[in-house]
Design a protein around this nucleic acid. Structure first.
Lengths: 247, 247
DNA sequence: CCCGGCAGCCTGTCGTGACAGGTTGTCGAA
DNA sequence: TTCGACAACCTGTCACGACAGGCTGCCGGG
């Protein structure tokens, strides 16, 4: 391997293992390291970057977790043959945090934010009368600049007064709900299907209308069974796979 | 905390961190440690079990991964509240039962059944050496005569001797595993993506190759972390939507 | 040419020590 | 009683060292 690696920044601003992880991931993402190609051994990486093996192992562990590489018992680490994938736990609260923790830059822009009256579908999902006021949000979430998730959310206005004017840019909606309205999600139902986007959604997600996407419908409720949120999300599964853990 | 912990076995048969992880998990499972209760600090655990902090951190890391505990920045580890557990009604045994209960006729035919050697992907998923023997199954599940799910499963032959000759027609694989091999699934990871089928799969599912399908990759394991099953399923989401309940 | 043994490489595991920075609880001053 | 400062605690991060056991590749013998 004759790749010139970036020098690591030692000012303590960012852990060494994360910088190393990012450097290796960049090689993989860019295709410098192809599927099933071996990575240097831990000792070699340790030398190349002048860090301890602790740091190297930390970085490799993270990459394995992200399924970008796999390890063979006693033999070394290899680039995963599968396409690049992000890890995605649940869908809402946790997922963006997890991505951030794994060293990705997650941004969220609000495309639309308004007060309206619940249509049939929203009313049924939220278990409120049709016509009751709802706050509608349309938000686009990007990971490392790549469009990733397009979410249309509806919340009963009664539960979240003023949300239609709140600044949600780059904030977790669940954080806002928790801090501002004391809303603690208790449970949720979700349904997943494979669909094509319409032209507007396709444009926002920067895919063609013949790209298969994951469509995720969700309803979340409080301890007392009050439905507080319904959304439909379109998810680029070429970028990320939807992760579900069963325990 | 006045719990008496088991002494760790130092004969090298099992890593110390795994024993420690198991000991802590037993406390949680048994209810000795309730939801949101704090665990002893790393230093305390290190003293209590006479192991280095390396070992303690390894064990805690695994428990976090299993979502049995969560950590608070700079404050310690806590037992996860039960209610955030992910429950999941999806593609395996449970879902077929649900469908049957709702009056549908669920049939399963085995298309392929053989003994082979683990390829790279199977080896990585099942955490076995490449080339180790695996039983491969290809099964098509229909609901009311409509193709619904196409599953390619791989299981380590070591764990399920003779499965390559077993008659699986219209049986739940999990039932067979339980009754015949005493296999009790403890947990699983699943990843979902939207994909197009190849022509062979499309023919079996009776769809065109341009129909978006759900692709579901799954790994399931036992209590002791042994991976016993990996599968990739193709799911017609025009027929049924994939359901995920979060409790 | 084939095969078996052995050296060397590599990971997994474990221990020790160290320091920065954040959090908490306490205690005394106001 | 309230508030602010300080000490104690705790995790995250990093370095270095050590050893067992598995795997590979090479080399020499048959």
């Amino acid at each position: 391997m004759t790749i010139t690696y970036p020098r690591l920044n030692r000012d303590g601003a960012e852990p060494l293992w994360m910088q190393l992880m990012r450097a290796l991931r960049a090689e993989i993402d860019s295709g410098e390291l192809g599927p099933d190609q071996p990575l240097p051994s831990e000792a070699e990486l340790s030398d190349m970057f002048s860090v301890s093996r602790t740091v190297v192992r930390e970085a490799l562990r993270e990459l394995v977790q992200q399924r970008l590489i796999y390890k063979i018992k006693g033999r070394g680490a290899f680039v995963s043959p599968r396409k690049t994938e992000l890890r995605f736990v649940g869908t809402t609260s946790g997922s963006a945090d997890d991505l951030r923790e794994s060293g990705r830059r997650v941004t969220t822009q609000t495309i639309h934010q308004s007060l309206g009256q619940a249509d049939e579908r929203e009313a049924a999902l939220l278990r409120i009368p049709r016509g009751e006021e709802v706050v509608r949000l349309r938000r686009l979430r990007c990971v490392d600049g790549q469009p990733w998730l397009l979410v249309d959310t509806a919340l009963p206005a009664r539960l979240v007064p003023g949300l239609e004017r709140a600044v949600l840019e780059n904030q977790s909606l669940y954080d806002v709900l928790r801090r501002r309205y004391g809303i603690e999600p208790a449970a949720a139902d979700r349904w997943i299907e494979a669909v094509f986007p319409d032209s507007e959604d396709a444009a926002l997600l920067e895919v063609s209308t013949s790209t298969p996407l994951l469509g995720i419908e969700s309803v979340a409720w409080l301890d007392d069974n009050t439905r507080f949120e319904a959304y439909y999300a379109l998810h680029r599964s070429d970028q990320t796979r939807f992760y579900v853990g069963i325990r």
